[in-house]
């Protein structure tokens, strides 16, 4: 994908657009509930997304993140609670949509329109100004300008989707599983474009099944389970909720280490700790003093995957 800024369309002055209220969160969700008949898809969800932040809304399948996101996008009405985007109701399209770009989970383009016609159509309807040429350059689809959407590959359709979302450099971009179906080069290029937008001051809300993307990119993460937050915070705050692990195998006849261990497969032992550095040093010091070789020693910090997996073992929310 090409550079996001080429001077062909001026980036909006965020301060002016905001009317001088830049301290107000871009998204405010308060006690949001979404119900389908008797089923509560979202339960009392509350969070805020600050200006310039990349907020990842993650969760297990059926956790309620799509329902929550649809309310934020203005595609669905809340059963109860309030959602404000730029201080307005997200269903107030005239007020909100010119400032918000949405990349849907599924394409939703007219098969018989060309790539350029699709971008032009959606671009004009957003109320933002930009050029088709620049936007197609961003997603590296310039060579497909006159190709009908029906003839695009799945990855190209995702890039077209991203192109319409970033048309006119919106202040808020909602990316619903943006990299699904993209090859690694296209993924890298998409994130490069997102980084550029964030440098320009855009706020991003993201859902993804690729946890490493959220771990690398998100300023904060809302981890949903059964309709509400399981955890919310920075990656460090989330991973801090679970212990890191040190794994090793002791040679036959070695003394027991001075730390609580649990046995693992093939004679290995595991130490689970919230203080990885201190405990690892303590183990290494002990091994040196006692002349013990710690076979296959490894120390792993807690990853987002571990936090995610811990949901499965958690008791059900009432």
């Amino acid at each position: 994908m090409g550079p996001l800024t080429d001077g062909s369309a001026a980036a909006p002055d965020r301060g002016l657009l905001d009317g001088g209220t830049s301290s107000r969160p871009v998204i405010e969700v308060e006690a949001l509930n979404v119900t389908y008949g008797d089923f509560r898809a979202v339960k009392d969800l509350s969070f805020q997304v600050r200006r310039g932040e990349l907020y990842a809304l993650l969760g297990t399948n059926g956790a309620g993140k799509t329902s929550a996101l649809e309310v934020i996008e203005g595609h669905r009405r809340a059963s109860s609670g309030t959602v404000r985007v730029f201080g307005k109701s997200p269903t107030d399209r005239a007020a909100v949509r010119p400032r918000m770009g949405i990349m849907l989970q599924e394409s939703g383009f007219a098969a018989d329109l060309t790539v350029a016609e699709s971008v032009r159509l959606i671009g004009r309807l957003t109320g933002r100004s930009d050029t088709v040429k620049r936007v197609l350059g961003v997603v590296d689809l310039t060579s497909k300008t006159n190709t009908r959407v029906a003839q695009l590959s799945g990855g190209e359709k995702r890039r077209l989707d991203f192109a319409t979302a970033v048309f006119g450099r919106p202040e808020l971009i909602i990316l619903d599983e943006p990299t699904t179906g993209l090859d690694i080069q296209s993924r890298d290029a998409l994130w490069e474009a997102v980084d550029q937008l964030r440098e320009d001051g855009s706020t991003v809300i993201l859902t993804t099944h690729y946890l490493e993307e959220a771990q690398q990119r998100a300023d904060r993460i809302g981890l949903m389970h059964q309709g509400t937050f399981w955890h919310q915070g920075t990656v460090a705050e989330l991973t801090r909720t679970l212990p890191a692990s040190i794994q090793f195998t002791l040679p036959v006849g070695a003394p027991a280490p001075p730390l609580d261990t649990t046995p693992a497969d093939e004679g290995a032992q595991i130490i689970e700790t919230y203080e990885l550095q201190r405990e690892l040093k303590r183990l290494l010091d002990w091994a040196e003093v006692n002349g013990v070789e710690l076979v296959d020693l490894s120390a792993a910090p807690t990853r987002l995957d571990d936090v995610f997996r811990a949901i499965d073992t958690a008791p059900e929310h009432s």
């Binding site: 949509r97 849907l104 939703g108 383009f109 007219a110």
Partner: peptide, 17 residues
């Protein structure tokens, strides 16, 4: 057809009423 392929949802993602 426009609803089935989510084109209506796409249009509703813009500022159009």
């Amino acid at each position: 057809a426009r609803r089935q392929n989510l084109f209506l949802k796409r249009l509703r993602s813009t500022a159009a009423t």
